[in-house]
Design a protein around this nucleic acid. Structure first.
Length: 470
RNA sequence: GGGGCGGUAGCUCAGCCGGUCAGAGCAUCGGACUCAUAAUCCGUGGGUCGUGGGUUCAAGUCCCACCCGCCCUACCA
């Protein structure tokens, strides 16, 4: 499986919504790796945005400096969030990206033409609008732009795109998003502008091949990353031969991924992605997360305060498949205490303690399996919350099993049987948990690993109430 | 304006093709237990399933209209 996240703009530091996307993709990547499937998990940053230019100007630092600094913050999420991506794209820094963008541009040449364009451009959205103000409420006023640009014959691909989506060759999940895209496509597509004047872009970006007065539209540039990062030996393996190519993204950029991008690929004669998964947004305390406001929505600060397991767990266990979700530190803490401390941590601790107390730490042979869990189908439906719930059934069943068998009242033989079952359940739990909480899974595995268990220690303490920490 | 998605117990939400679908978790209350991180397990209470119609032997579950929230898209002067 080739799995990608969107590449983030680097005009600001990463926020919790982007962490959601990364963690979801990470779960898919780890899950499929665990099943022995080849996986390439790729993320990165979109450096070539005019936003970055403006953010740098506002700060009074060179663009390159701001972009490099913020890109490093995004790449640093690998450690912060326990991510397992194999590849990190930097669209401004990698020659292969630029070469790839140029190659695709030329391959699409038969669908490109020059046209005069006039419109109101919102730098915040990197989009044109027929009239103001910008619907997202970006502060910067719309710029009246009048220039000649390169246009792409998107209108030619309306039927092909419709067919692609209806036939399921391009699967869009959840279905609501699929319907949305179909409605957009079948309402009629117009050609789109795919370049900007180099002057207006302050020279930042990738020049249009053969036309130095223009730079490639940032979205074209950005979308291309999914294959330019493969230029060289990886391309055939991951874009031509790989049966599953999954793009993960937020709902705000579906059109680019489900319409423009496939159309570009069709025009260029390239293979297409197979799946598009769209997540909704995280709000913080009932408000939309703004990139500038860190507040309670800074994933790095949250991990510092509560630990990576608590943050990942909240993102996976609490975020519904459809619909925005509101984040508060109270909810994160409540979920972590209930599930990680009281549920998982306490289970492992009580099991290990009993093994020590009744069996001198020696692990008896595994007995019956307590419960079958089905994370596969939940993850195939990109339902992370349900998948996490499936894993958790082991915790619930194991706790019930303890109450049912009461090892402290059993004979030696009974204790060996019940604790053998329980240790085996905890070990299986660690395996299933790995894609979701790699750190926690390793600790569980260590606590119930070996012929003789280590001295038990609490795995997860209770978290301080929100706001009470220093 | 067009399209889409939500509106189900105090809170967060499951409920696919109509007939144990009126549920889960948390919170509340009661009980059990003592291996464990004042953890765990069992049970109780609580909802006219947004509103009004319709189809059907039977509708949160299908159809229509409307109200509320959100998203996408487009703007008729």
């Amino acid at each position: 499986m080739y799995i990608t996240t969107t590449i983030a703009y680097v005009n600001a530091r990463p926020h919790l919504g982007y962490a959601l996307e990364l963690v979801q993709a990470d779960v898919l990547a780890r899950h499929h790796r665990r099943r022995g499937e080849p996986v390439r998990f790729q993320t990165g940053t979109d450096d070539n945005s005019l936003k970055s230019v403006l953010a740098a100007e506002a700060e009074g630092v060179p663009v390159r400096e701001l972009v490099d600094r913020n890109a490093a913050a995004f790449e640093g999420l690998r450690e912060t969030l326990d991510l397992s991506f194999d590849s990190f794209v930097r669209t401004s820094a990698q020659p292969r990206h630029r070469a790839g963008v140029e190659r695709i541009w030329q391959a699409v040449g038969h669908d490109l033409y020059r046209r005069h364009y006039e419109g109101l451009y919102c730098v915040g959205c990197e989009q044109f609008y027929p009239q103001g103000p910008c619907p997202d409420g970006h502060a910067a006023p719309l710029q009246h732009v009048s220039e000649e640009n390169w246009f792409f014959r998107l209108s030619t691909y309306q039927d092909a795109l419709s067919d692609l989506i209806r036939s399921g060759r391009l699967r869009i999940e959840p279905a609501a998003r699929r319907n949305e895209v179909l409605a957009f496509v079948e309402a009629g597509l117009e050609d789109i502008s795919v370049s900007r004047s180099a002057a207006r872009a302050r020279g930042w970006g990738i020049p249009v091949p053969g036309d130095p007065s223009q730079v490639v539209y940032v979205w074209w540039d950005a979308l291309a990353n999914y294959i330019t990062a493969l230029e060289g030996g990886d391309y055939d393996r991951w874009w031509v031969d790989e049966p599953r190519k999954v793009h993960v993204m937020g709902k705000g950029v579906i059109r680019f991924h489900a319409v423009y991008w496939p159309a570009m690929l069709l025009s260029a004669g390239e293979p297409l992605p197979t799946e598009i998964f769209v997540h909704d947004y995280v709000t913080a305390g009932g408000r939309k997360i703004s990139k500038s406001a860190g507040g309670g929505a800074d994933p790095v600060a949250l991990v510092d305060a509560y630990g990576v397991d608590a943050v990942r767990w909240w993102l996976l266990r609490e975020v519904p498949r459809v619909g925005d979700v509101d984040f508060t530190e109270e909810r994160l803490v409540a979920r972590a205490d209930e599930d990680l401390a009281n549920g998982l941590g306490n289970l492992v601790n009580r099991v290990a303690t009993m093994v020590h107390r009744f069996l001198d730490g020696h692990v008896p042979p595994a007995g019956e399996r307590l419960v079958e869990v089905r994370v596969d189908e939940a993850l195939d439906a990109f339902d992370f919350r349900r998948a996490a719930g499936e894993v958790w059934r082991i915790v619930e069943e194991a706790n019930r099993y303890v109450e049912r068998t009461r090892p402290w009242k059993q004979s030696r033989a009974g204790q060996e049987a019940s604790l053998g079952t329980l240790v085996a359940a905890c070990r299986e739990l660690a395996v299933h948990l790995e894609p979701f909480l790699p750190t926690a899974a390793a600790r569980v595995a260590a606590a119930v690993g070996g012929e003789r268990l280590p001295r038990p220690e609490p795995l997860f303490g209770r978290l301080a109430p929100a706001g009470a920490h220093g």
